[in-house]
Write a protein that binds this DNA or RNA. Structure first.
Lengths: 345, 345
DNA sequence: TCGGTTGGCTAAATCGATTTAGTTATCTTG
DNA sequence: CAAGATAACTAAATCGATTTAGCCAACCGA
């Protein structure tokens, strides 16, 4: 059953498609269509259950009212929450969200960008896993509005909304050191060029330096996204069995933290006395874990909201001057028992 | 900077758009285009960085290669994981996913359906919050393929992929009863007509009956989605302060469980001895909570995968005979300490 | 040498909405 | 009453890809 088109309404009423289009776009008055005719059009539109075809509209207008979101993994609650906040803003303004996961694969991300462009998205929000910025530079060349979130490229001028990862990480590591931990292992996500990870590692080094603790490369490990659980398990095993046992682990994202908990289930360690634990990215349930888990809480909703705001600005001003919007948000350290120190519990 | 179109390639080569279209769709041989010309077309397409305009293509073909997903809240990890599994399948087949949250509001859901239809989605996957099936019947009338997930409508023949909520719930409640709990409170999500909630409540009653425990309506509460946390807090407060104190709480979804944990933080109860806890929907972190939380684990990935499989079947067979695919998946009871009974811990 | 086939290619219509550049009839005004 | 203004409306082009119907030249067999 073919859906009703403008032409159907026009034919039924014996008027032109032009007229129908004008009326339904609320430009009847402006174009001097009589009130009576306007009423007839509306009536018929309802009667025939007219639903405009947005592909046709989009084709003509060169606008899809769609934006694309690319994240590492939409099932990660960090990204899911961001997606939600973007959706809320977008929906308010008549935009819809195409969502995709890159799985931290560069190839997949560039593919997704292409697919989105073919679909004529009006803009992109990307938590990019790319190493170099060629694909993004192309976007800028093609005048496609986009905003990076979570991760950015220090040398490359784009819009972005990120948090101060280095500061947050340094704060956390200082916190751990003050609690008495000295050998603090770091687990990060591969690929290692992702700015968040680099900045968090940098913050870690800053904090160590501040406290005159030597940096030991052996306890800073990059975990592949693909089989995170096994790798964390092995890595943690090594950390704990080595003669110079680590006394704290700082997991650089929520998934790594969960993997740590899983791995630790095999050991009989008394937390936080025998091992301190901390995570980047807070989760609701961290508070209720045994022990409650210390984490850095990111302003997730604000990231999404802000990113969309910037994007819509770019979209609406047609001759884009990029590079204007670079937002760095703060974080909050949620100190809980898992990092409360090596003394008595 | 206008993007390259078919016509640009055709003009540059002095051939027709028809030819270019045929070649780029790999139908050059079939249409007897010389190998040489084909090569020239491909070359030029690469040179001009041609990206097909899918709105134009979609308009002509009446197909968008897009599917719409409507869930209650994409930031809920249950739905986020489903979304991910749908995305994986969809992406493999060249489809992209439009994602939206209904917030359990009927009005919002019907609006979203309309918006999706205007965008010419090829199909819909819906975790519906609707009370009556008129909107869905309209979809069927309009021959729009769709699959319900999580929730379905008993009297209404549609495709769906759900779990056996009644059985799972009964199993859980029996488990609680066997552990020694007698006054088991139930927290469900409003609106109360959602099939999952009804079925879970039904399963609860079945289990009570089986064990000759009277049903007490006062300890079965429906919580509004909007201010879940406050309502759970108040409700739990009443449950715990009443003379006939409840001795276990079964939260009918993951968010309710988290809200329970938050509310319980104010009390000094020894779990699971003084209060048993259980949840529908398992979360990774439930295992690591204090105490580890008993939950029903749903085959989330399978739900999404199966739903998309069915949808794509419907999409590909053009004269749809609906009602063929109704899948009920099993669940797994993850018994953990939070429900281990009133005896010693 | 004619009718038919094949190979290689194209003009124009189409999808549905928007927009440009009008048209026609009526009315106003000097 | 002619010139211009106004009100109410429309034909056709357009966005970009696909598809239908068909063109033209070369070649083949009888």
């Amino acid at each position: 059953m073919k859906r009703t088109s403008l032409a159907d309404i026009a034919d039924a009423l014996g008027v032109s498609r032009t007229l129908v289009s004008m009326v339904l776009n609320h430009r009847g008055d402006k174009n001097g269509i009589s009130k009576e005719t306007q009423a007839r059009v509306w009536e018929k539109a309802v009667e025939l259950n007219y639903q405009p075809n947005r592909m046709a509209r989009g084709l003509r207008l060169g606008k899809s009212n769609t934006i694309g979101l690319i994240v590492a993994d939409i099932s990660n609650s960090f990204y899911a929450r961001i997606a939600r906040s973007i959706e809320d803003e977008a929906s308010r303004q008549g935009y819809q969200l195409l969502v995709s996961s890159s799985d931290e694969k560069e190839r997949r991300e560039t593919d997704l960008i292409s697919r989105f462009l073919e679909r004529q998205v009006d803009g992109l929000i990307i938590a990019s896993t790319l190493k170099n910025t060629t694909a993004l530079a192309e976007l800028a060349d093609q005048q496609v509005p986009f905003v990076l979130i979570d991760r950015y490229f220090p040398g490359f001028r784009t819009n972005y909304v990120v948090v101060d990862n280095a500061a947050a990480s340094a704060e956390m590591v200082s916190h751990l050191i003050r609690a008495g931990y000295r050998r603090i292992a770091l687990l990060s996500i591969a690929p290692g060029h992702i700015s968040t990870m680099r900045d968090r590692i940098a913050g870690y080094r800053t904090a160590l330096d501040d406290h005159n603790i030597p940096y030991d490369h052996d306890i800073v490990k990059e975990i592949a996204f693909e089989n995170l659980h096994d790798e964390v398990k092995n890595t943690l095993g090594n950390f704990l069995s080595s003669p110079q046992r680590v006394d704290a682990v700082f997991a650089l994202n929520n998934h790594l933290m969960v993997a740590c908990l899983e791995a630790l289930a095999d050991y009989n360690l008394v937390l936080p006395r025998e091992l301190g634990l901390a995570s980047f990215d807070d989760e609701n349930l961290f508070r209720f874990c045994q022990p409650p888990l210390t984490a850095i809480s990111q302003p997730v909703m604000e990231i999404g909201k802000k990113a969309f705001e910037i994007l819509i600005l770019e979209i609406n001003q047609n001759n884009t001057t990029y590079n204007d919007h670079q937002v760095v948000l703060g974080t909050r350290l949620e100190a809980r028992e898992s990092s409360s120190g090596k003394a008595k519990v």
